[in-house]
Simulated scan of single mutants.
Amino acid sequence: VMLSAKGKKMSDIMAEQYPDVEAAVEQISSQTRNDLWRAIEEWEGLLAEKTLLERVKEAKKEREGRDVSIVPYDPRYRAAFKALNEEWITAHWQMEEPDHHALDHPQEHILDKGGHIFVALYREEPVGVCALCRKNDPVHQYELAKLAVSPSAQGKGIGMLLCRTVIAKAKELGCKKIFLESNTLLRPAIQLYRKAGFREVEIYRPSYERVDIQMELALQ
């Protein structure tokens, strides 16, 4: 690859103009209050740490997060609690008997047994749910269960907000370790649990046929 005769001529002309360009830039720099080159260097450093696209996504999540609120369960959210969970379960598996118990009768099978349910509202519409179930277990007093977020509302940090709300409630109740069951097919959910601090433990007496991973989080 080489320059043509015309290209060489243009290169020589440009080389002659380099000092002129440099002098013009220096003149502008001397008349400004801020150092443009230092600012560019700072921008490059910040963008190397985190791209502009990543920053835009974070800003979007933060903005949309201001429209999200987490509220305690109310009977008016019963249909949403069932529908949101049925959606992710039936996408991969068949509903099992414990699913029907919890989703058809949340009052009797979760709340009346000392558990709690939280609902995520996005612009006042229920788009996410999560339960804190009381367990008859000497090690794991409570279980994080039935976490579901509508596909239309994913990417807004709602799953993490629900997890943190449930964990905070477990701490308030004096729980030492909180437990959960899941399946590794649900990769985003497993990543979420790990980010929240849960660690994998050896599987013991799973409650559902689909369970292939159990995790726990020490709270004290």
Rank of each mutant, 00 (worst) to 15 (best):
Q31E: 14
S4F: 01
Y73C: 05
L111E: 03
R55Y: 01
R187T: 13
M2W: 10
Q17W: 09
L121H: 06
Y193H: 10
H92I: 02
A79Y: 04
V129T: 14
V25R: 12
I117D: 04
K176N: 11
D74H: 14
F198V: 04
A120P: 01
L52R: 12
I178D: 06
D112A: 15
S182M: 06
K195F: 02
K146N: 13
M10N: 10
L186E: 00
R134V: 01
R55M: 12
K135L: 15
E172K: 12
M215A: 03
R38W: 04
R205H: 12
R76N: 02
V56R: 13
E49F: 02
Y122N: 07
Y73I: 07
C133Y: 00
Y18P: 00
V71H: 08
P126C: 07
T165S: 10
A145P: 02
V1C: 09
L162A: 07
I13M: 13
T90E: 13
V1H: 13
L147P: 01
T165C: 12
E49A: 10
D212P: 07
P98H: 06
Y193C: 06
T184H: 08
C175F: 03
A39D: 11
E143C: 05
K9R: 15
V21Q: 09
D137N: 15
D137H: 15
T32N: 08
R164E: 14
Y122C: 07
P206V: 07
W88I: 07
